[in-house]
Structures are given as C-alpha cells and as structure tokens.
Design a protein around this nucleic acid. Structure first.
Lengths: 132, 132
DNA sequence: TGTCATTTTTAGCCTAGGCTAAAAATTATA
DNA sequence: TATAATTTTTAGCCTAGGCTAAAAATGACA
C-alpha cells in the first residue's frame, strides 16, 4: 500500500536511474572515441530518435550530469563524469564476470548491460573477487 | 535511428515484460500460500496502490495471462501458469547462483529479482551448471 | 553569398506505470 | 437486515520514455 513496506518498489525505482547511467556512460565512451558528442551519435548508439535523445538529454542536464548549448556538442559535468566512471566500472566487472563464467562475448556484452543496474555492492564485490 | 540497428533497444523493450512476469510469479506464489489471490494481496506484495494493481491486472488479462471477474479473486490462465513457472525457475536459478557465489540471503533475494529479467538462456544455463 | 542538405529542436501524440480521491460493490456486524 | 467497514473500481492526474512531423538552425558548396 505504501512505499516503505516493500523491497520491490525499490527495484522499480532503480529503473529511473538506469537511463541516466546509460547516457553518461555512452557520452563518455563516444567522447573518447570521436572527440565530441552530438545528438545524432546518441541517437545511433541507443537506436532511438533524435527527438527522444533530446528529451532525455534535458533530463540529464536537469540532473546536472551533462551540459549542452542548443545545436552544440554535449559534455559531461564533473558529476556526470563521476557517474560515468562508476557505471563503466560496474559494467566492466559484470562483463568480465560473465566471460569468466563461460558466457560468449556477444551474450556477455548484451546481458551485462541489463544486469549492471541490478547488482548491489555486495554482489559486485564477489564478482570482482571471482574475476581474479 | 531505427530499431533494428541497436542491441540496446532490445534491453529496454524487455522491460515491458518484466512487470507481467513479476505479476504472474506473485499471483502463483500467493495462490499457493493463501488459496486465492485478491487485489489487496498484490497491492501489499508490490507495495503499490490498489488502483495500480487494478490497472496492471487489466493488462495481464489483456495478454491472456490472468482471469478475474470484477470484485472477485484473480486466477492465472494456462498461459499465465506457464509463464509463472518459467519465471520462478529463472528466479530460483539466479537466487541459488548468487548464494553459491557467496552473496547473503537478503541481498541474493533482492538482486535476483532485478537480474532475473536480464539473463539470457546461455547465461542461465551456465549459472545452473555452476549451482551443481 | 544564396541555396540546399543535414541536424537539432519543438510540438503533439502514445503507452506504461505510478498516484489520490471518490464512487460502487462486497463483507462484516450490531 | 440495515448499517458500517472494507475492498475494488473508476476517473483523472503525473512522469518517463518512446514516436512522427514540422520548424529552426547549422553546415556545405556551387
């Protein structure tokens, strides 16, 4: 009935940050490869329309994770970079973990993108340990 | 730009079935424990309002996963039971896997709920193997 | 430099999944 | 069996995350 009495709602709430994390991760990645990041890069990366990217970008800016002047390139704020680094590390740990488990590269890539948002610190620590 | 050229959108799309799977799983569980399943049981289980349960239930019925007459108990269809069984098995494999990895019961419970929707068949098979 | 192509933004639409408040139906009890 | 309490449904709202189509800005190039 209310929010506090269920562990479940937390999982659903976590979804809200997923897309933000994915965006900062992608922006960081593209910036490293191509130098700067445009709306269209993200549109291709996520397989969504530019209008959608635009809308999500506004949320990112609102959360002080990214900066961008109209029609110009996209940059991460300090906060955005921090989140990107954390996300990437999580992603990498899960990805390596799946490989270690025997999962194929392709599937490990795919599954890790979904799983990275649902592993707690404890699980992450154990995956890291398993990877060594 | 379009849907077909990105693996990413598939992950987002999968979210659409998450809630359906969670509902059939919960309905099955509650039915086994209490005999029948009411709107209010699900409301408590998921920590959402009864109005929300009602709306989601309608989607379940639309997808031919559940049946219910107004103000009466909720039942799974054959299809719903099938999906519930599959979901439960997935959930159980992931849960046991996390325990085997060394994750605490509480966290394994929590994380497995999130992860179960993001493991492919291949990963699931390897987790199962690891569990033995 | 003016025109055309491309990119970005805006506007307006949709569905999913939340909520509250109020109405309707059911269940319990005096 | 009325009435009160509870449960379920409905109505109407909101945000997130998609879309298309059209307008606005930028960039290319003849």
């Amino acid at each position: 009935m209310n929010k506090s009495n269920s562990q479940y709602s937390n999982i659903r709430n976590q979804n809200k940050n997923e897309i933000l994390e994915d965006y900062v991760e992608a922006i960081q990645e593209i910036a490293e490869i191509k130098g700067d990041v445009k709306n269209s890069d993200l549109s291709i990366h996520f397989g969504v329309s530019q209008a959608t990217v635009n809308k999500n970008l506004k949320r990112l800016i609102n959360f002080n994770l990214a900066k961008s002047e109209p029609y110009r390139s996209i940059f991460l704020t300090k906060e955005g970079k921090k989140l990107a680094a954390i996300s990437r590390e999580k992603h990498e740990i899960v990805y390596q973990f799946l490989l270690k488990l025997g999962v194929s590269k392709k599937v490990a890539q795919y599954d890790s993108e979904g799983i990275e948002h649902h592993v707690s610190e404890e699980t992450l620590r154990l995956m890291k340990k398993f990877n060594k």
